[in-house]
Structure formats: C-alpha cells, structure tokens
C-alpha cells in the first residue's frame, strides 16, 4: 500500500489550515482573547483534543519535531494516538524528549523542563471561557471581557475561601494576561501557572467543541488571580518522587495495593526518565531490593 495518498499534509486541507492560522495570528496579536474559528470535525471525539489537534495541524511543518503529552505522560492512550496520527498524516518526526521538540501538544500539564524560544506549546482546552460556570450567557461573558468586568471571577475565589478556608481551585486556575484579559489556562494544575508567566515559548490554546483559539505570546505577563490576604499559592508535596527523588515537581499519586499503599511519582514522565538516566534514584525505583514490610 502506498503511503497515505488520500490525506493532505497534516490531515486538514490547505484552506482550513489557512483559516486556523488566521485565527492563531489574531490570538497572538491580542493575548488572552478568545478568537472564534470554524472548528472542523476531527477523526476523534470531542474532549480528546480536537482543538489542540487542529492547532497542531495548522502550524506543523515537515521539519518539526512533535511531542504529545497527556497529564504529563508520553505513554498514555491519548498521547500515543495523537503522536501516531501526526506521524502518519504529516510524516513528522516525533519525540518524547521535551528539549528536542519544536511543537509540544499537551493536555493538563506544562513540562517541568523550562521551554525555550522557538518551541510552541499547544494546549487542548475543553472550556475556554473562565467565566462560564458563573455566567451561563455567552453574550454576557463577551461583554464582560470587552469591558474588563472581572469582579465575578473573584466571586468564585471568595466562595472557595468561604467554603474551604482557602482558595481551593487547584486546576484551571484563572489568570490575567498582560493586565487585560482573564483567561482559563485549560485544566492544568495551578502548579503550572507560574511557568506561563514570561515564558520564552509560544503558547497556543485550541478548543475544538467550543470553537475558540487563544494564545499567550512569548514573554507575556501571566498573573494568577488572588486576594491580598489570600495570595496565590501552588501545590506543595511532602515527599519527593518515589522513582527519581525529584522535588519541586508536580507529582501523581499512584495506588499500589488495597491496604492504603501508595507512591508519589513525577507526572512528567520525560523529566523522570531523564533524571533516572542521570543517576537519581528514589525510594521505590527498584534498583535495590528490599524486604517487604
């Protein structure tokens, strides 16, 4: 069988890519502003990254190197299939190494390794509108963005403190971009919010079902919202990664048995592998056999 003669490069036709690129350019020109675009149906269900895939398809070129992560991991279903998809329809090189990638499509995480100029981070976004759960009317939220009326966003944070004694929002934590637009960082943990601030990499956000694209250009101010007496804080972990002993990274809890056994491991698998290759060892990395308790 010949090599996929039926697909245009990167799956989408050239006019569609052109339309998406125009939306992306507008989004870059107005950081944090949600640009409507004519989202296409993709060969995957909504919620699996149709927006991110369309953005990636519109910007990917033959010389690009693509990395796809899902919850920080390169080896989960979503990541593996999107990587395979682009390897097939665009014949691009793929990698799992953050440093080697020119385009990183992500769901729910920003890589631990600091991104460099020239790299592009593409987020998959389920709900682009940060005000949605407070104000159901789209017409109203658009006016609120236009007039910079963001008091409502603080109502949500107020509710958090009133109910939990602290700001309990842990993911999708709203940010103010370049002192103008309040933006949802997609459901990344708030741990990653500081990485968006003044990042050297271009950050693009695609929401397929909601038909919105927005962007944070390199070196843009991204500030998490908070109260003066309840400042923004990221999550802290009491123990290091059980495999690579990393601290100051985002950890996933893994259940080991049904007796309450659990371990914390790096959510960013590439970062964890790099550290282990460099000789770091965690408590459960398996190099030294220990007697079971």
């Amino acid at each position: 069988m010949s090599a996929t003669p039926s697909y245009n490069f990167a799956y989408l036709d050239e006019q569609t890519k052109r339309m998406i690129r125009r939306a992306i350019l507008k989004a870059i020109a107005i950081p944090g502003y949600q640009v409507p675009f004519a989202s296409r149906e993709m060969p995957m269900p909504y919620g699996w990254g149709t927006g991110g895939v369309q953005v990636t398809a519109a910007i990917v070129g033959p010389t690009d190197v693509l990395k796809v992560i899902d919850q920080g991991a390169d080896d989960t279903t979503n990541a593996v299939s999107i990587r395979a998809f682009f390897a097939k329809v665009a014949n691009v090189k793929t990698t799992t190494h953050t440093g080697d990638a020119t385009i990183i499509q992500t769901r729910h995480r920003i890589p631990e390794k600091q991104l460099q100029a020239g790299q592009t981070l593409v987020y998959q976004v389920p709900i682009p509108e940060p005000l949605r759960l407070l104000e159901p009317r789209e017409t109203e939220t658009r006016v609120m963005h236009a007039l910079k009326e963001y008091g409502l966003m603080h109502v949500k944070l107020y509710e958090d403190i009133a109910t939990h004694g602290r700001i309990a929002t842990t993911y999708g934590y709203p940010v103010m971009v370049e002192d103008r637009y309040v933006m949802s960082p997609s459901p990344t943990p708030k741990f990653d919010n500081p990485k968006m601030h003044m990042s050297a990499a271009l950050q693009l956000f695609g929401a397929g079902r909601e038909m919105r694209i927005y962007a944070v250009p390199p070196f843009t101010k991204v500030v998490s919202l908070d109260f003066e007496d309840h400042p923004f804080e990221i999550q802290h972990f009491s123990e290091p990664c059980a495999l690579c002993a990393a601290t100051g990274v985002y950890l996933d809890e893994v259940i080991l048995d049904d007796h309450g056994g659990h371990m914390f491991v790096c959510s960013d698998t590439d970062n964890c592998e790099d550290r282990r290759a460099a000789g770091h060892r965690g408590a459960l990395s398996g190099e030294v056999l220990e007697a079971a308790e």
Binding site: G151, L152, H154, V155, Y158, I161, D226, F227, E228, D229
Partner: peptide
C-alpha cells in the same frame, strides 16, 4: 453582597 465590592476592585477577602 460582596460581588459589587469585588466588581469595583476590592481585593481584600477579610
């Protein structure tokens, strides 16, 4: 009750 205060820029929870 606090919504209007937050809308005009009050950012102190207490």
């Amino acid at each position: 009750v606090g919504e209007r205060l937050m809308a005009i820029g009050d950012r102190h929870y207490g």
